[in-house]
């Protein structure tokens, strides 16, 4: 099973890398923020798999922190940046 977990983690990392394309392309600030949300979920899954593969229960705590903090950046974006952020980025 360790092999499967490692393979799964590698696969998830590859989908995360593919998601970076969306950050670069945009086109709107909301699109980039959405990609950040994608990274959060993928990283949580990746960590849970690695926790089993490496027999390291502490990694489940890291996953928990990821899950808790995934929303912090998005909420900040919405409360602070939603007007300002787009100006420089929707354009390019």
């Amino acid at each position: 099973m360790t092999l499967v977990y490692l393979g799964g983690a590698l696969f998830l990392l590859l989908t995360l890398v593919a998601g970076l394309w969306r950050v670069l392309r945009g086109p709107t600030a909301a699109d980039r923020m959405l990609a950040a949300q994608l990274f959060g979920t993928t990283a949580v899954a990746c960590l849970l798999l690695l926790a089993e593969a490496d027999r390291a229960p502490a990694l489940r705590d890291v996953a928990l922190v990821f899950a808790l903090l995934a929303v912090v950046a998005v909420v900040t974006f919405v409360r602070r940046n939603w007007r300002a952020a787009g100006e420089d980025l929707d354009a390019d």
């Binding site: 909301a30 923020m33 959060g40």
Partner: peptide, 28 residues
Amino acid sequence: GKLILVWLLVLVASTLSCHLVARTAQRR
């Protein structure tokens, strides 16, 4: 239980983010 807890947290976080990002996009 802990695995399910992580899943529930991600569920709450992503529905919240989803709604907030959609609302932001609409208001913009």
